[in-house]
Design a protein around this nucleic acid. Structure first.
Lengths: 353, 353
DNA sequence: CACTCCCTTGACAACGTTGTCAGGGACGCG
DNA sequence: CGCGTCCCTGACAACGTTGTCAAGGGAGTG
């Protein structure tokens, strides 16, 4: 019948500042001052408090602190992107996390999977957690819903894909320029029939890279051939099968610009199966590990996801620190890396009867 | 002289339940009941509250809620691992996140980079955030410090690498069995001089895979040759240069077991430079994208990082939901994937004078 | 009609922390 | 010696929410 110490009893749970104060023989407020390294506390009391903290294994509750502080910082930022498991975004995430950790800020992530419902759901979850800021690679067409979700003073940075309907800095790769460069590069190696293979062009990056491709053709004076423009290659397998088809049609391309990693991989598989991998030129958008070990090694327009993450985080923290001013655009340059597949020349005309 | 509405004034910041209550003409507590979907609230008041919430764009503050609720759940779990940018861990992270999101839980991550100071720092940060649980791929030798950092009722699951000094479920790949299988596989293809290349053996996975390799040799009746056991290959470049050296020594191996992804990549590069990639057999531990497109395609012992993440998250949530009982061990099987590089046979004896 | 019971609602305190303010004491200066 | 100033400390309220409890009112029962 003796009263059990239940899990809700006063003795359970973590020690609080009050407990520390009792042990140290000071007031609650003095403990708070010591924990926050405020000035003007006598060294004697600091020592007493520190020792009480050590005895109790006290650790401050950042949640309670956030609630009470006037700045209301949670020291958390959110990062919403397609998939943290995707190498491009994983690298970007890592770069964001490095910037954040240097400031004692935690990053919480969300996976959107090209699903715009999820984008709103996660934005709502972020709101309930009162993140200090948001970095997102958008999926939906329009982000004006953020106006009602977020506080006006919660900064947003759009990365990889531009935002619409809500102000925020943007950090983008030079998708158009990169794709134009790829096209120009292939043309410079003698190609005239250059195909462009991409995912759904409602994805902004896919659209921009296609635009860059078209600009490249225009620059060279080649009329676009719609039969050489494949879209909606949403998976590696789909890309592979559509490329197989492409080469079973008359007058196939001699060079391919693949606008995305998974498309590049599917394309390489298809060319292998066709025995054309040493014949048809390929330039892929976005670098990938071991691209240099394939035969031929794959020429790519490399992005710099680490720089994108770093830049986005820096821009966000600038805003969090109070910087105001019109939305800025940061362009992260792409780089052509010549490895072989993009330097293959077309077979001479007489080789094909 | 008119009082400016400062950023600290009553009109700023997000609306609270109090604001909603005033608009809806009900008490604060009734708003709370509606927000939490409690029963026994009259439909009329529910409608009024819902409408007030919509008018104000009210969003509950999960931090304040956590502080007051008796269960003290933050609905956050922490995931500490080597590097979220590393493909293995990125995939694992994604799987953890999927399990968590299904429960409305957020995952916060930390990158340890094989640095044990960072492990303690991050454990401390996690503690201050009062995460409901912790999944970690340990870096340091001993986790007994967790006892003082975490509340006794904060469950911990160790993934990929076992924990020491603190109780927790573990989720591990069958490192030893996988490495033994790799060795056996190479021996079955006629190899007797099989090298084992790994990173620092203080990393548990590296040690276990080396153990598996030794067990494999023993099983076949081959005496280990310490000149064929390379360790401390901490980077791809280092692996590459040490493999080059290895083949400039007399009596080189005819087959290589590479115990880690980056070592496999460095090894493949070295063999290419030596022109031995079609001669020396390779089995790598851990699969990687496009391994099937290399020439020869790389035979691997594949791990299943998604299953590891999923299993770890499920184990953690079981504990969070109140399951007690002795620490459990979950073994996630590895799979031998034959692709060519592991099936190369040694050159016949007479080929080398 | 009196009584009980249950449904619905709100007042109030409390979670762990920090902002505000006031008070006590030491010190300096006229 | 009187006065002001600065340093140090603690009491108290408040952040936004939920747990507890009590009270009002309508329905059901004897």
């Amino acid at each position: 019948m003796a009263p059990e110490r239940t899990s809700r009893g006063r003795g359970s749970g973590r020690p609080t500042m009050n407990d520390v104060a009792k042990i140290a023989g000071v007031s609650l407020k003095t403990v708070s001052r010591v924990v926050n390294n405020e000035e003007n506390v006598s060294p004697l009391l600091v020592a007493q408090v520190r020792s009480a903290i050590a005895i109790l294994n006290y650790s401050p509750d950042i949640g309670a602190s956030t609630l009470r502080r006037s700045d209301r910082r949670t020291e958390m930022i959110a990062l919403l992107l397609k998939d943290v498991g995707n190498p491009f975004f994983a690298t970007l995430h890592r770069a964001v996390d490095d910037e954040a950790r240097a400031r004692g800020v935690q990053v919480i992530t969300g996976n959107l999977d090209e699903c715009s419902n999820r984008e709103r759901e996660l934005a709502r979850a972020i709101t309930m957690r009162r993140a200090d800021g948001l970095i997102m690679a958008t999926v939906s067409e329009d982000q004006s819903y953020l106006a009602s979700e977020l506080r006006v003073d919660t900064p947003v940075v759009f990365v990889d894909r531009p935002g619409t309907g809500f102000p925020g800095d943007t950090v983008l790769a030079t998708n158009v320029l990169g794709a134009t460069e790829a096209t120009r590069h292939l043309a410079a190696h003698g190609h005239r029939r250059i195909a462009c293979l991409s995912d759904n062009v409602r994805i902004p990056t896919a659209r921009l890279r296609q635009d860059g491709y078209l600009a490249g053709l225009r620059e060279i004076g080649i009329e676009p051939d719609e039969r050489l423009i494949l879209t909606d290659l949403g998976s590696e397998a789909l890309a592979e099968s559509r490329v197989l088809e492409l080469f079973h049609r008359p007058d196939p391309p001699t060079a391919l610009f693949t606008a995305q990693n998974s498309v590049t991989a599917g394309t390489v598989r298809a060319l292998r199966r066709l025995g054309l991998h040493r014949t048809v030129a390929v330039v892929g958008f976005d670098d990938f590990p071991l691209a240099d070990l394939l035969e031929p090694a794959i020429t790519v327009i490399a992005q710099d996801p680490a720089a994108m993450g770093r830049t986005a985080a820096q821009a966000l923290f600038r805003r969090i620190d109070g910087h105001t001013g019109p939305p800025a655009e940061h362009w992260i340059p792409t780089t052509l890396i010549r490895r072989g597949s993009g330097e293959l020349r077309p077979a001479p005309e007489n080789a094909r009867p």
